[in-house]
Structures are given as structure tokens and as C-alpha cells.
Design a protein around this nucleic acid. Structure first.
Length: 630
RNA sequence: GGACCCGUAGCUUAAUGGAUAUAGCAUCUCACUACGGAUGAGAAGGUUGGGAGUUCGAAUCUCUCCGGGUCCGCCA
């Protein structure tokens, strides 16, 4: 198909030279798929070239059509409507196309990434709580993009940057120490990540209690909880500001400032901060608890990853990377692209690029998040020397990655241009954002389990799985559940935020994963009743439904290439859906095994074979398995 | 104050600047003695948030306004 499109463009260019005496570069031409309401397979729109042809649209299209029909044997007919030249490809061409697709053991591949390498970072969790629906979207996207890039010929390194240090872990650790009485995942009968998450919530509960108690005392003019004089003065100022303010909005703002100030001055927060300081100074006892609790979390995460069928080639830990980047910042300072403030802090000025000034090193010489990411970028490159580096991170960090890329460019890093932020929208619940403190988080493990239950229920109700062993059934329910969930998350363009309503379970009908899996199982059922090899006959006639399916199937490699270039799994999802729908139409309209004409039957079986391979490959690009029966 | 993203049918969603704007869910019809009904066919549903501009042609590009979300922390 690609060769033919190339050939037609060249012929159009030749025609412009011969018929109109004008040069027209073939590569710049656009050939589109013909609109379904019109006859034809490929369409060339002549409007933009009327200046060259110096004829009206119909005449121009007519001349081109005639020329192409004469010079290109694959074009059997053409028609002209206004400025649209619709080209019809010959049945012989389509059957030849079927032959080559049928002989391709792995249809749909493309070579846009051949000889290149890419690192895809995704998941990137904090280690203080279990994974939730937001992570599931991230992981599903990241894994799918990895597969898509692999399919395009890239060498792919899947990376996970784990945020295993910082105040949030210390909160879990502290709560465990104070309230945990030596509880372990074994003693609690709980996944490790859930147990650590439980203590994170526990910390917050105690913290809120303490804050409330202080607030009561503050309201009675007892400020003794704030030992620090400066803090106490700040609080007094805020309280006076609150008294003087009559505007409701501004009062709320001040109230929240007061709460933040009080929170910062609680006993619990100061203990958590103390723990962080101990961790940073390498205190043995603290490190021991930290390692123990993190290992619980990793075990829990691994289980979730395994259930999702994803894996990583490389793990990065912030405890190893958070001090990196200083050297690069120093380089930038020497190069004169960064500036040092009077207090010794280092900044980058991005006002010329329309952004702000951004701090890179604190006055005391310690790193910030950006410093760390500069360092990690270098570390990744030193490890893999990849051509591209994809970061699957939510769109709330759009600004951060814009800045990161600019900084890497200013530092003349060879890998700066390869940095790509695959930004995706948040998953919202009907009542707004997911908030762990308010208990409105959709937990990943629970979600997968409830999908499993639905899949099981529906499958049992339909009762088509006689003869499958219990272990096969279990695998099947899981395959369907994962298919429904992943497809639900991937069919939407990543940039769009999406709504998830836990009340309305994810569909198993229509444009869904199970629909596509079902189509696959159906085809496999047909193929099970035949021999493996078919002979494509190039003389048998083709029906319209068959040609439609063929046209779709032959565009798989273009689609997979586009998906790789745009880092967009939604294109693949929608493509396989089209394929499945198209096949189902064919299936309904004609009989395959019952076809009397042996040539036509063989061709249809070959189409079944190609369709099943296309669906299988396409679903694999989404990280979804397909069942032989369901 | 500045910057970014998203607005398409009741809901979810598709569409390299091209023809009468895709589909799915839900609603209403219809089709199982055909290879698997988690299916297929049909009906209904739209001022592509509003307005202006560029263009032979705009859901798509530009401007502006409206709505929703996010960011601009010496948090990560």
C-alpha cells in the first residue's frame, strides 16, 4: 500500500510536468482515503494546485485522472466530483495486498524507529501509599507507548523512577513507629503497600487532631504551642488580618494560611521533619525502618505490576538521584547560562522564553526537584545513550518539563532535543479530584478485583466456556477484566482528562476491550475448524464489505507508525475497533465456512487469518491479551 | 498578575485545512434452525462553547469572549 501511494504521488508530479509544464514535488502531495459516501479508495484534492494547472477544478482532476489510469495499472477507474479526484484500485491490487498481508507473519510493523533507542519512564510512584487509578492510567499509557515504539523498531528501555525518600515516607514511618506496635504485612494480612498507606492516613488523622486542638487553644488566646518567636509573631499578624477582613473569599484564604502555619508547628510535623533530617544524615535506625517499609511497598507494587502484566528494565531511586545535578548546574554557571544571587542561590532566567526565573540550587547549596531531574536526565543518558527520552507524567507538570528541556538545551546537552513529556490528563471522579485524605481514591488493586468480578459474572451468565479448566477460566476472567480496564483508559486521547464513575462499571459492549477480544475469539473459532494454510486466489471477485476490511487491514503499518511518532495509543485502540467492527459486518453479511465457491472461501479464510493477527498485534500494543475462547 | 491544557449529540468519543461532522453507551424498532447475539441493521439525537478573521474550503489555523482544569513553592 505504501509503495502504491508513493508511486501515485510520483505519477501526479509527472503529470503536472507533462500536462501543465509545472514542477511539483511528489513528497509534498497528499493522498487521502476516500470518504465512505463516495466511490473510490484514494482521493486527491486538486484545489491547492489550480494555480499551477491554470484550469478549473473539474478539468484539472479529469486530466490527472486520465493520466493516472493510463500510467498506473493498479488504478482501474476514477471519478471526479468538484475538485475531488477519486481513484479506484483494481480488485487484483486488493487481492495482491491480501496475499502479502497473509504471508506476513507479523503484520503492522513499521520501521520509523529502526536503529534508534528510546527510554520510556512511567509509573514513578511514591512509596508511602498504594497505586491508584491515576497510576493505572500512567502505567497503561507508558507500557503501551513502549510496545508501540518497539513495534516501530526502537530499542526500548522501560524505566521506573521511584520516589522513595522525603517527608511523605517519613510520615508513614513515624506513624508506624508511634502507633504500629510492630505490625507487618504478614501479621496484618495486608499487601505491604496498603499497610504503609494505612499508616500514612493514620499520620494525617493524628495530625488533624493535633491541629484542631491547637486551634481551640489559639481561639482562647493561648499561643503556647508555638515555641518559635517568629512563628508566633506571624500567627498574631494573621489573626489580626483575619479580624480586620470582611471579604469572605479573603477570610478563607487567611484561615487556610493560619491552618498551614499551625500544621507546620505541630509536634507531629516537627517529629516527621526530625526523622527526615535523621534519614539524610544516615542515621542507622531510621534507615533500617525506611528500608524495611520500602521493601514492603515494593513487594506490593510488584504484585500490582504483575497483575497488570507490565515490567521494567531499569529502576531509578530518588534516594540515589536526589543529590545529582549539582555538577551540571555548576557547568551552567561557568558557561554563564545560570546566575548566582547575592545569597548564593543559583537561578536560571527564562524570561526571554516567556517563562519565569527558576531556582536550581538553594543558598546552602542543596538541590531542588529541578536539580535532581537535570541530574537524572544525565544519569539516564550515561546509562543508555538513547536517542529519545519519554517521560509519562501528568499534565500538572507541563511547566516543569518545559523548563527542564530549556535548561538542558542551555547546557548544550546532546540529549535535550530528545526529551519528550508525554503529558496526560487527570482522571476525575464525579465529585472532582481524587484525594487520598478524603478517602475518594480509587485503589488500583480494588479496581482490578472488581473488574475481575464483573468479567466473571458476565462470562458465567453467557455460559459459553464449557470445557475450560478452572485455571483457564481464572486466566480468562483476568484477561477480559484487564482488557476492559486498559482499553477504557487507552481509547481516549492522552491529553484529555477523563471522568471515571465507580458507580457505573466499565462497559463490556460497544467500543470496548471485550468487544474486540470477542471478535478475536470468534475468528479463532472459525479457524479452529479449518486447516492452517489457505491459498489466496487472485481471480475471485471481492465484495464491498471484504474490500473495506482489506483496506483497513492494509493501513495497519501506517497507523502503528503514526502512533509511534505521536506517542499515542488511542490511535491504535480506535484502529483495532474499526477492524473488529468491519470484520463483524462481513461476518454477518456472508458465510465463511459455508461458502460454496472454494476460491472465495479460501480468500475469506485468509482474511480471517490476517484480521486475527492484526487484532492480536494491535491489542498487544495496548498491553492487552486476547483469548482463544470467551 | 502571567502561562498552559480541554470544550464536538443527554453521557463517552473520532476526524493530516477538504465532500452531507465519526462511532459507542443510554432510548426506540428490527434480525438467531447460518461459522459464537459480549453481534449486526435501522430510527432519533449537532448552530463542533459564542463571536470575528485568514482561506476556494475551518471542529481543525489566528484573535477575542465564555465555561472547566492546571501551573508559575528554596514541595516532589
Amino acid at each position: 500500500m505504501n509503495e502504491l501511494v508513493f508511486e501515485i504521488k510520483k505519477q501526479i508530479s509527472d503529470c503536472f510536468k507533462n500536462s501543465f509544464g509545472e514542477e511539483l514535488e511528489a513528497g509534498a502531495l497528499k493522498l487521502e482515503k476516500t470518504d465512505k459516501d463516495h466511490k473510490g479508495d484514494l482521493t486527491f484534492v486538486v484545489f491547492p494546485y489550480l494555480r499551477l494547472s491554470k484550469k478549473n477544478p473539474e478539468q484539472t482532476a479529469e486530466i490527472l485522472g486520465k493520466y493516472l489510469q493510463e500510467h498506473c495499472m493498479e488504478i482501474s477507474k476514477y471519478n471526479v466530483i468538484k475538485g475531488f479526484l477519486n481513484l479506484e484500485l483494481s480488485p487484483e491490487f486488493w487481492l495482491k495486498e491480501l496475499t502479502s498481508l497473509y504471508e506476513d507473519p507479523d503484520p503492522g510493523q513499521n520501521s520509523s524507529g529502526k536503529g534508534k533507542s528510546v527510554m520510556v519512564e512511567f509509573s514513578s510512584p511514591n512509596t508511602n501509599k498504594p497505586l491508584h487509578l491515576g497510576h493505572v492510567r500512567n502505567i497503561t499509557l507508558g507500557y503501551s507507548v513502549s510496545r508501540i515504539l518497539e513495534f516501530a523498531g526502537y530499542r526500548v528501555i522501560k524505566a521506573n523512577l521511584i520516589n522513595d525518600r522525603g517527608i511523605h515516607i517519613c510520615k508513614s514511618m513515624l506513624a508506624w513507629q508511634k502507633f504500629g506496635i510492630g505490625e507487618t504485612p504478614e501479621s496484618a494480612g495486608m499487601k505491604g503497600d496498603h499497610l504503609v498507606g494505612k499508616y500514612y492516613v493514620e499520620f494525617d488523622r493524628h495530625l488533624q487532631e493535633e491541629v484542631k486542638a491547637i486551634q481551640v487553644r489559639v481561639n482562647q488566646n493561648d499561643l503556647s504551642d508555638l515555641n518559635d518567636q517568629v512563628q508566633r509573631q506571624n500567627l498574631i499578624q494573621l489573626l489580626e488580618k483575619l479580624k480586620a477582613e470582611s471579604d469572605n473569599e479573603k477570610r478563607k484564604e487567611t484561615e487556610s494560611e493560619i491552618k498551614t502555619l499551625i500544621t507546620r508547628n505541630t509536634q507531629l510535623m516537627s517529629e516527621a521533619n526530625e526523622m527526615l533530617r535523621k534519614w539524610e544524615s544516615g542515621d542507622a535506625e531510621t534507615l533500617k525502618i525506611w528500608e524495611m517499609m520500602n521493601s514492603w511497598v515494593y513487594k506490593g507494587f510488584d504484585e500490582t505490576y504483575r497483575r497488570m502484566g507490565v515490567s521494567f528494565d531499569k529502576y531509578y531511586y530518588e534516594s540515589n538521584t536526589y543529590l545529582l545535578g549539582k555538577r551540571s548546574v555548576m557547568e551552567g554557571l561557568e558557561m554563564g547560562v545560570f546566575q548566582k544571587d547575592e545569597d548564593g542561590s543559583v537561578w536560571v532566567d527564562l524570561t526571554e522564553e516567556g517563562l519565569d526565573r527558576k531556582i536550581l540550587l538553594r543558598a546552602d547549596g542543596t538541590s531542588v526537584y529541578m536539580t535532581q531531574d537535570i541530574g537524572t536526565a544525565q544519569m539516564k543518558y550515561d546509562d543508555a545513550h538513547m536517542d529519545h527520552s519519554v517521560y509519562v507524567v501528568g499534565n500538572e507538570q507541563d511547566y516543569h518539563f518545559k523548563v527542564l528541556k530549556l535548561i538542558l538545551k542551555k547546557l548544550n546537552k546532546p540529549y535535550a532535543d530528545g526529551v519528550y513529556h508525554l503529558s496526560y490528563g487527570m482522571v476525575d471522579l464525579p465529585h472532582g479530584k481524587m484525594k487520598s485524605r478524603e478517602g475518594t481514591v480509587v485503589d488500583a488493586d480494588e479496581l482490578m478485583q472488581s473488574m475481575y468480578q464483573s468479567a466473571k459474572q458476565i462470562t458465567m451468565d453467557l455460559g459459553k466456556t464449557e470445557g475450560l479448566a478452572p485455571s483457564e477460566l481464572e486466566l480468562l476472567y483476568e484477561t477480559i477484566a484487564q482488557g476492559a480496564l486498559k482499553y477504557f483508559l487507552l481509547k481516549v486521547d492522552p491529553v484529555k482528562r477523563m471522568l471515571f464513575n465507580p458507580e457505573e462499571s466499565i462497559d463490556f459492549q460497544g467500543n470496548t476491550g471485550p468487544f474486540i477480544q470477542y471478535t478475536y475469539a470468534r475468528i479463532r473459532s472459525i479457524l479452529r475448524n479449518t486447516n492452517d494454510s489457505f491459498k489466496v486466489s487472485e481471480k475471485a471477485p471481492l465484495m464491498e464489505v471484504e474490500k473495506e476490511l482489506l483496506a483497513l487491514l492494509s493501513s495497519f503499518s501506517q497507523k502503528s507508525e503514526q502512533a509511534a511518532i505521536e506517542y499515542n495509543p488511542a490511535l491504535i485502540a480506535n484502529f483495532i475497533y474499526e477492524v473488529a467492527r468491519s470484520f463483524n459486518r462481513l461476518y454477518h453479511e456472508v458465510s465463511i465456512l459455508g461458502e460454496q465457491d472454494e476460491n472465495i472461501k479460501q480468500n475469506r479464510l485468509a482474511m480471517c487469518s490476517v484480521t486475527s493477527k492484526t487484532i492480536k498485534n494491535g491489542m498487544e500494543l495496548l498491553g492487552i491479551n486476547v483469548p482463544e475462547r470467551m
